[in-house]
């Protein structure tokens, strides 16, 4: 009999260090949505390991950052840009873009990432991708409630769910992503934010198969039959 908690926690140790390779990362992703939320022992271990990664930072000697850094940050602390939502909490962006588009973007080469669901796609890549799509392409935006937006561009083949500052949905709960068409909702993926609030999921989805995306909060490991409560109340 395999020790489920031990096996899970061994993966969690690599997960908080961001050192899992794609296969293990996919397994960790699965355990994080199916097992961890409902297991107080593993949740406690996840939080403890996360704290250790914060503590470990202190082994590096402190260094005074360059003086211009704080003024630069101060200047940017004003709400700015067309993404006014950037200054507000809990935004989640589902950015949809094609592989062809991405490969053409300054060598971002997201296509080199493994697996159909790669939770550890570097944040910077997706953010840059989202910015690029917004700046250079005719995109459609649909609110997903709260500050979440669905972005879609022509020629879509892949779906990125990207968010920062996304709060944990609560003990025993996960976020669940649905593709909704007029008559039914198809379950796409369950996810949890990284302990630092980052969400990053990559899925291969045929965009013509649904009308819009929906994110709900559901009990971890539950059967995805019908969408429950939306994760974020309708904006406005």
């Amino acid at each position: 009999m395999i020790d489920r908690h031990g096996e899970t926690q061994e993966l969690l140790a690599g997960y908080v260090l961001q050192s899992l390779s794609s296969e293990d990362a996919a397994e960790a992703d699965r355990l994080l949505t199916e097992h961890v939320p409902g297991c107080s022992e593993c949740r406690m271990m996840l939080d403890a390991f996360q704290a250790v990664t914060g503590e470990l930072s202190l082994d590096a000697d402190p260094v005074r950052p360059p003086d211009p850094l704080l003024p630069r940050i101060h200047r940017e602390m004003e709400p700015r840009g067309r993404w006014g939502a950037r200054s507000t909490p809990g935004r989640l962006v589902a950015a949809v873009a094609s592989v062809a588009l991405v490969v053409g973007v300054g060598g971002l080469a997201l296509a080199q990432h493994g697996g159909p669901s790669t939770p550890q796609v570097p944040t910077a890549d997706v953010q840059e991708l989202a910015d690029y799509v917004i700046q250079h392409h005719p995109i459609q935006q649909q609110p997903l409630g709260g500050n979440a937006q669905e972005l879609s561009a022509p020629g879509v083949q892949e779906l990125f769910v990207y968010g920062r500052g996304v709060p944990f949905p609560g003990p025993g709960l996960v976020y669940r992503l649905w593709a909704v068409s007029r008559h039914h909702a198809t379950h796409l993926h369950d996810f949890l934010p990284y302990p630092d609030g980052t969400v990053l999921v990559r899925l291969a989805v045929d965009p013509s198969s649904f009308d819009h995306l929906l994110v709900t909060v559901e009990p971890a490991g539950s059967q995805p039959s019908e969408p429950g409560d939306p994760a974020w109340p309708e904006a406005g």
Binding site: Q50, S57, G165, G197
Partner: peptide, 30 residues
Amino acid sequence: ALWRTPEAFDPARGPFRTFFLALVHHRAVD
């Protein structure tokens, strides 16, 4: 990120110190 989405820190899950430095680490590795 701290300024824009302060609610990503949940005091129930540990001290601010470890949350923030873990965030810095996460981004550095990224």
